[in-house]
Amino acid sequence: MTTVFKRPESLKDTETHYCSGCGHGIVHRLIAEVVDELGIRERVVGIAPVGCAVLAYEYFNFDVSEAAHGRAPAVATGMKRARPDLIVFAYQGDGDLAAIGMAEIIHAANRGEHITVFFVNNAVYGMTGGQMAPTTMLGQKTETTPRGRNALGEGAPIRVAELLAQFDGVKFVERCTVSKPRNVLKARAAVKTALSLQIEGKGFGFVEILSPCPTYWGLQPRVAMRMIEERMEEIFPLGRIKEPAAEG
């Protein structure tokens, strides 16, 4: 028997509440696998966002706290400062991180807090019913951009990974996606690099994950995955934006 689909210890044995074809479940699994692989389950503390992933503590089998909408990087700062021995990560959506929580993420990054942030970019607000997010693409129709997002008055999508990469305190930035198996493996590697960076005490690590929201994109799961490749990656190019500095 192959054990490829064995549930990681860091994931609880429960059904998630995510819609079918949602990227959140995949990202949870990647994080859980890497936490297991790095052997840090007993000293990791996660922060769930306000967004569809708010119930992450029901799925992760380690200590998890909620944070108020957008404040996860500040909460993570407090945690890590108080207990530097813990491995602290924030898990945030695009509304949480790039709209209401923009100040918190920028300043935590600029201070070079020794934390890891996983940024799930699905270009909409899922939890509240598919409204425009700061990462919504131009022309994309949402509940609050019925004629498609217009740069004039609604702004253009914000490239958070590039924005954060400029800060000296930020040591690692990669954008990946979960659109197909090859990309999932790359995303897993990025999650591992980011958490390893924190274990080694090297500073702020950031992984942006382009993730489908079939429900509010109004697309079948498979089509939604294709949409990431055909449209999102054009605006949010995949790849390593900032390499961790070499040893020494």
């Binding site: 108020a68 500040a74 909460v75 993570a76 407090g78 945690m79 918190e104």
Partner: peptide, 11 residues
């Protein structure tokens, strides 16, 4: 919220 973070880890 930093206070929240420090408090939730017991400090």
């Amino acid at each position: 919220n930093m206070v929240f973070g420090a408090a939730v880890v017991g400090a």
